[in-house]
Amino acid sequence: MRHLLAPALLWTAVTAFSQTAPFTVALSAARAQVVAGDPVDLIVVMTNISDHDVDCTVNASNALDRSYTYDVTDGEGKLVPKIEKKYHGGSSVWPCVLKPGQSDTPGGGRISVLYDFSRPGKYTIQVSRPIGGDDQRPETVGRVQNNRAAVQSNAIVVTVLPKLEAAEPK
């Protein structure tokens, strides 16, 4: 009986969360189709749908906003491993506040600095942004932690074409 209840409880929790998410995250690709070796750039727009200010701090490091969690899977649904780097890289942290109803300027960045898109195929990308304290209210993120819920973006597919195929006229 416990096994039957667990999915129902999870469904209830997700539903409740989706009704109270303070912001939305919209994801698109600068180019939905690239040639292997070309960069893959994402455009992420965060919109405050709550009735209060929402924190939208940007953590810019090597052309990518690390305030978001990026999930990349290949055509087989397998997680694409991150690129290992010896140098950790610097960053700039830019405080940001969204008023109710306001959308941030386009962010996101170059996802291909973090994931390897060199193999041709279709990649599914989704980003998420954790909800901080007091429903992401500014200055509360560090003080109060919610249950680590995150707002998921829509999922997009980026197609990586082989270099040779792209060079040949069709």
């Binding site: 700039s92 506040v97 962010g107």
Partner: peptide, 22 residues
């Protein structure tokens, strides 16, 4: 990172930009 620049100091009008690489 992005265009336009996202490092705008909250609450400033006209907007003031900042950077503090670390």
């Amino acid at each position: 990172l992005a265009y336009p620049y996202k490092g705008i100091i909250p609450g400033t009008n006209p907007p003031q930009a900042e950077d503090a690489p670390n």
